[in-house]
């Protein structure tokens, strides 16, 4: 299914993927009483932040992410996506790490879990990282900087 005016968009698989993400976050919330925020869980798993979440649980969640992706890739056989050059990935990762610690969350914690709760902090955080994301891509494209190798 395609979206009129947006030939590259994949609205149906996007929505289905989003529903799966929502189910996963709901399982964490209603089953374990926790926010499925990946940056916070990563910090917990690697001993960078302390939280009430058991470390083994944080590690298990993180291990699940590539396992789940692998299942979908095996079933759907999606094409190989392009990733940025190693230096670019390093710079981006560093900024993401600093930003998510200072900002107390990322797309999953603030975007999915916080916005759906109408948390004021998450609504502001999400609006902020979306805005700087839009500007960053606009600037990179305007300057014709090649991100992929």
């Amino acid at each position: 299914m395609s979206l009129p005016g947006f030939p590259d968009a994949a609205p149906l698989t996007g929505l289905l993927g989003g529903v799966l993400i929502g189910i996963a976050a709901a399982l964490m919330l209603l089953g374990a009483g926790r926010i499925a925020g990946v940056s916070g869980i990563a910090a917990r798993a690697f001993g960078i932040a302390s939280s009430s979440m058991p470390r083994i649980g944080a590690v298990a969640f993180l291990l699940g992410l590539p396992l789940g992706a692998l299942i979908v890739i095996r079933l759907a056989g999606t094409s190989a996506p392009q990733f940025a050059a190693p230096v670019t990935l390093g710079i981006a990762g560093l900024i993401v790490g600093i930003g998510t610690r200072l900002g107390s969350g990322c797309t999953s914690g603030h975007g999915v879990c916080g916005m759906s709760r109408l948390s004021q902090r998450s609504l502001v955080a999400t609006a902020t990282f979306m805005a700087t994301g839009f500007v960053t891509v606009a600037v990179i494209n305007a300057l014709n900087i090649a991100v992929a190798p």
């Binding site: 990946v38 940025a84 990935l89 981006a92 900024i95 900002g103 502001v124 990282f129 500007v135 960053t136």
Partner: peptide, 22 residues
């Protein structure tokens, strides 16, 4: 300011590589 500044930074990194933590 920490929440907003941190989120602003995160968005920049997100835009550079097209990757967030998940």
């Amino acid at each position: 300011p920490r929440l907003i500044g941190g989120s602003a930074l995160f968005g920049i990194g997100w835009g550079i590589a097209g990757l967030c933590p998940g």
